[in-house]
Design a protein around this nucleic acid. Structure first.
Lengths: 155, 155
DNA sequence: CCTGAAAATACATGCCA
DNA sequence: TGGCATGTATTTTCAGG
């Protein structure tokens, strides 16, 4: 099993900070040339240590402040993977999980306003064969760090 | 308040898929030229909708399978931000949170083996002024999706 | 395993539709 | 807005220590 040295750790830290940094920029931070950084990143990708590169999206910057938890009751038994496929492309869905209890799944939904929320619920219902759904709209968020890149510096 | 059109949503989806995709690649997916994509991405950055770009790291690919929850008792009162700074650069620390109860904080730690875990605990203790700590080692994980980029395809 | 250089790509800009 | 054209930067490959 391969082990990472201190330079690999620094490269991972740099890429976690900014996945679009150039190899030269990373190299300046870890005292390495750009080609050397690239080869290490390629190796980390090859090993599966780097799973991929993503973007952290914050829709509250667009004034999306209407938030709801939606309990969903399916028509018969549906595989979790199927539900994921049904909803993963709906940008209003922050998270979805199958749960214990009477509901089959619970979705966390973020929208601009009530009208927008209603249209999102419409899309959520149309993509899966649901018996019914029950929405709980959030009045005030007491604690929420899930949409904050750096919990120490507010949002 | 600005609103995003369907093309912006597609660009966000593409960047969430792969934050290091080139503007030309994204353009091919959304039927736009590379400069047009760049201008939209710049606008999304400007609006704060794109918070940044990160890397998803999976250390289980390196055979890190020894996992523990560490309850930590501080020497007097310490600000959460201070604890975060103390531990955020330790790669073995998956998460850290201040908690209710008798302990001040709980850390989720992942290491290669017991020896490696011990050295990580040593570092954790040395970076903060701790009275004592108490480790609970995980025997078997029943459910854990936190380190899985795509829950539908196992890890 | 690294650096340094060269060729192939991609980015950033200005200008025009 | 978007597309095209251009100069600049970056990536990627290769030679050499």
């Amino acid at each position: 099993m391969p082990r990472l040295d201190a330079t690999d750790e620094q490269i991972l830290a740099a890429l976690t900070d900014n996945a679009r940094a150039t190899f030269a920029e990373i190299g300046a931070r870890v005292n390495l040339s750009a080609p050397a950084v690239k080869r290490r990143v390629d190796r980390l990708l090859d090993l599966g240590v780097i799973r991929g590169f993503t973007t952290v999206v914050d829709r509250s910057a667009l004034g999306w402040h209407t938030e709801a938890y939606v309990q969903v009751y399916c028509q018969g038994a549906i595989a979790p993977a199927e539900l994921r496929r049904a909803w993963e492309d709906i940008p209003e869905v922050l998270s979805a999980a199958t749960v214990t209890g009477t509901a089959d799944a619970i979705l966390h939904v973020l929208a601009r306003d009530m009208q927008h929320l209603e249209s999102a619920l419409e899309r959520i219902r149309s993509r899966a064969d649901l018996k019914r759904s029950e929405s709980i709209v959030v009045l005030t968020n007491l604690i929420d760090r899930s949409r904050t890149a750096d919990p120490g510096e507010g949002g």
